[in-house]
Design a protein around this nucleic acid. Sequence first.
DNA 1: TAGGAACCGGAGTTCAGGTTCATCTTATGG
DNA 2: CCATAAGATGAACCTGAACTCCGGTTCCTA
Lengths: 188, 188
Amino acid sequence: MSAHERPLRADARRNRELVLDAAGELFAQRGDAVQMDEIAERAGLGVGTLYRHFADKQALLAAIIGRRFEAMTALARAADETEDPWTAFETLLHGYLEAAQADAAFRFALLGPEEPRWSDIAAEKTDFAEITERVVRRAADAGRLRADFCAQDFTLITRGAMANMTGTGDWRRYVALLLDGIRERPGT
Amino acid sequence: MSAHERPLRADARRNRELVLDAAGELFAQRGDAVQMDEIAERAGLGVGTLYRHFADKQALLAAIIGRRFEAMTALARAADETEDPWTAFETLLHGYLEAAQADAAFRFALLGPEEPRWSDIAAEKTDFAEITERVVRRAADAGRLRADFCAQDFTLITRGAMANMTGTGDWRRYVALLLDGIRERPGT
DNA sequence: TAGGAACCGGAGTTCAGGTTCATCTTATGG
DNA sequence: CCATAAGATGAACCTGAACTCCGGTTCCTA
């Protein structure tokens, strides 16, 4: 826990990366149903090595999800730099969902019963929430989103979409339906 | 498997019901995370008795979910008897979601990775799909739903809503947003 | 380049939870 | 009221998957 630990030995650093990569790929494919032995094998290491780097399966999973949240934050930041508020919003939403589709572990984590744990971790380590809030606000202020739309609603939408990524349903259609409900309409 | 089995002994029939009730309540509260021993205790029986009536945990869970689907079918049938097509649709949607909120096992089953198993079982044993299809069609034909709305979309909506029932999000707001996207609008 | 700390491997341990089965109990038909 | 088959019981068993542990290996520094 001391702040100044000597840097990892070269092989340890390399192996840590191998573990992260293997776990990332397997978790993304099949959620937390993958076994530690499988991850070790895919990484070309022994299980013991996994446990040298991560206290337990949860910790490894948390590291992977943390990574994904960092990527999501980069995404949000990029979207926020887009000129047009509506484009920014759409870019963020689609980028987020596209990434979520490719990562089962992320989806299961956010949909599972022990949320809000993950969101809290994300909030501690990244600015995802703040940036998203800004993007949403910009779109609402510009009159492109219904006036009462808020960041919470972004979560509602993404959760709903992710729930439709398992199975046969067409989540893009679902998002399209939703967008029709949240876009500001001149006619009303 | 023969069609003519002698009726269950009185105590057996009673116990079967006790098991179903206990399992129904516990599964509804906590999904399939409950243990067989817990169910047995709640029912005031030994585990062995559960296994006399149901081959394994899956079978018991299937029985419970089957029950729920029967209730859902009754709901749909009632809604279909409503005069106004839009009221019928709304009644079905809300009834379904209200019931889903009270039953975690049902939600997890329909959201989990091994869907479409459950829907198939439901289709074999009930008319839920057909009736829902009719209700949806009526609302669409009456011009109260956007013309391209189909029964599949009903599934998309319910899955999305159910995904927002775990955690802190407000799924009713979510449904409201969606309805705005789905309703036929004179203005367009 | 030698000493030793850090690291690795993977067979073996542990444990939780589903499932069984030998034994006891009870409903039911005669 | 008995005989007996159906039913109930729960301690013991089994399985699978997370985790440990220590002998062997590798990197690093002086």
